[in-house]
Amino acid sequence: MDTLFQQIINGLSLGSIYALLALGYTMVYGIIKLINFAHGDIYMLGAFWGYYVINTWHFNFISALLSAMVVGAASGVIIEYFAYRPLRHSPRITALITAIGVSFFLENGMSYLFSSNTRDFPQIIKQVNYHIGGVLISNIQVLILVTACALMVLLQLIIKKTKMGRAMRAVSVDADAAELVGININWTISFTFALGSALAGAAGVLIGLYYNSIDPLMGMTPGIKAFVAAVLGGIGSVPGASVGGFLIGILETFVQSIGLSAYKDAVVYFVLIVILLILPAGIFGKNVKEKV
């Protein structure tokens, strides 16, 4: 029983990071129907930014997190502007391949500029472990969970309650009608990229704290897992992305805990195949009917 709880705690911590990443995939997909394969690399940029400002400018956790969100948002907006916007009216496959290209560009660019070595993420917060019953939980885990959940609540408020949030939803469902009420589509898409990428930047700093090590290729695997999480939740659905992220995190820790560490990634991809076969719209996905 205790190990079960233990795995759930570990799974939730990891899952909250996948959830933050999955939200970016799902929002961008919702608004321009693009799977932004460079999204995981924004998370890498966030982690490197955190590494840099903590080491050289001695930022504390909050300022490292917030500034990484700003850097993430800016990167997302710049990538959209230069790489995706010119392809807005091209076939979808063109944009998809471009996204893969952007991902390679960021990974190799960072390796070239800062070397591809793995480095230790500075531990600004001293780890303290609490024993609750038989379950071990660290202050870092609590911090990750609390931060991720707070950001998700904030995102939900922005989407549901603000004018820009309504504009995002309007553009997602009907871009022409949105333009007809005066919404600037380009600006709304930039805003969406900024929000999603800010969450990825935050996730980068959180994973640095959790796993202690970062490298230029660190975004690849979590990026794909978060994408699977978004598909599991129903791509385009914001609550779906959060739930999908947590589920993938828990699944991964369970697979690890039963001694199948070597297969933990394979299991996630297996889940993707299964969802695509039996539940292609995902848990919260709408069965999209063409309007007549």
């Binding site: 309007a170 469902v173 009907d174 022409d176 009608a177 007809l180 309007k291």
Partner: peptide, 10 residues
């Protein structure tokens, strides 16, 4: 617009 185009989900 023709066909109404209300924002579904809103």
């Amino acid at each position: 617009p023709e066909g109404r185009h209300v924002f579904s989900g809103l």
